[in-house]
Write a protein that binds this DNA or RNA. Structure first.
Lengths: 199, 199
DNA sequence: TGTACATCAGTGAACGCGCGTTCACTGATGTAC
DNA sequence: TGTACATCAGTGAACGCGCGTTCACTGATGTAC
């Protein structure tokens, strides 16, 4: 067996990483196989040794966000690894709504960078989106204190995720930097109020 | 002057309406000039008598949502025209998060159908997005009761818009109908709680 | 340890195709007389 | 009122271009002896 299985796996991962970054920036349609392969240090023809078709990359690129060993800078810089309990959720919310995340289009969460692309995509892309969302909802629900009014943790987690995703999606779409900052600030305050946190 | 100015204006509007519907369904990139013109009952060559380039349609198509005389069915069926005060906001929120809106991709709000397309678009598309958002924020801020904790009306309006947009964007992206319904339900309850409404 | 071999990841020219845009034209319509 | 004319919205063939995909090939590598 020439070229170890590990070598092929590494190349495949490199292709997916390049694809994720480029898709995040320009969408599924606008990015070409040639661009992805060039970014991965290869030529376009080799693509089909790893994937049957361009579409097969979409799901892999979305899932890469929750499977990667190398989280993007906006996560490393803004998520406090020593946080515990509700602090975990709080530090994730702050990172998610951070200026770093807004600007890091290539490394951003796919729910922010590719929502309308996914909505038009195949069932497999949508399922990848579902997995990303469920992961975030799961972390939120696990660490949020139970609500005194009896609201289920999952319901509250879903609403908080919708809030931060909506805030970032709008901030990215409106263009105006000041307005984008205002949207993120308002969203963060509302999340804090809904979760019963100070400040 | 052959063909009245009104006739040309009508044709132009028809093209924009077709474009808005098709863009909402398939995104800016995937829709062809030929498809749009065919949908408008014309042939592709005539497009350039109305627009200099395909890209010029993007802004017009987004703005059409807030300039049209014929609102989509999910608005007509779910928005109560007799509502007053906070009831106006409540009826808009219910319509926005309705099953009708989720399913009516072609007639949906561009903030739900085209967010990632807009984020990658030109300044003019982003400005159209800003106008759509500001219109919704304006209506919310105008009719929401002032908050006892001193939160500015605009800040609360922005957060509520982020919430309903985020809920719908996620509902459209995950594919699973039941999960989409759960997201919308959780979002609606959180909006109601944040606005201090009953139920 | 050295060598011949088989495998298959990666290369790059070539393919068919459909896109956005152009352009010479056609013919419906408003206007002048 | 009727007719000749000028305008320009709309037509459809044609264009260059770049895409996704294919395919004959090359050559780096692990294995057998």
């Amino acid at each position: 067996m020439p070229y170890s299985a590990a070598h092929k796996q590494q190349t495949r991962t490199r292709i997916i990483e390049s694809a994720r970054r480029l898709f995040n920036r320009n969408g599924f349609e606008a990015v070409t196989i040639g661009e992805i392969m060039k970014d991965a240090g290869l030529t376009h023809g080799g693509f089909y040794k790893h994937f049957a078709a361009k579409e097969d990359l979409y799901q892999a690129a979305v899932l890469q966000f929750i499977c990667t060993d190398t989280p993007p800078r906006w996560q490393r810089r803004n998520i406090d690894p020593s946080a515990a309990g509700e602090g975990i959720v709080r530090t994730i919310v702050d990172a998610y709504l951070s200026d770093d995340h807004l600007r890091d289009v290539g490394g951003s969460c796919p729910m922010i960078a590719l929502p309308s692309d996914a909505a038009r995509g195949s069932d497999s892309v949508k399922d990848a989106f579902r997995q990303v969302m469920e992961m975030m909802v799961g972390v939120f629900a696990e660490h949020l204190e139970p609500c005194e009014d009896g609201q289920p943790a999952r319901e509250r987690a879903l609403a908080l995720v919708a809030m931060v995703v909506g805030g970032m999606v709008l901030a990215r779409s409106v263009g105006d930097r000041k307005l984008a900052a205002e949207i993120r600030r308002s969203t963060r305050r509302q999340v804090y109020a809904a979760a019963g946190w100070q400040r």
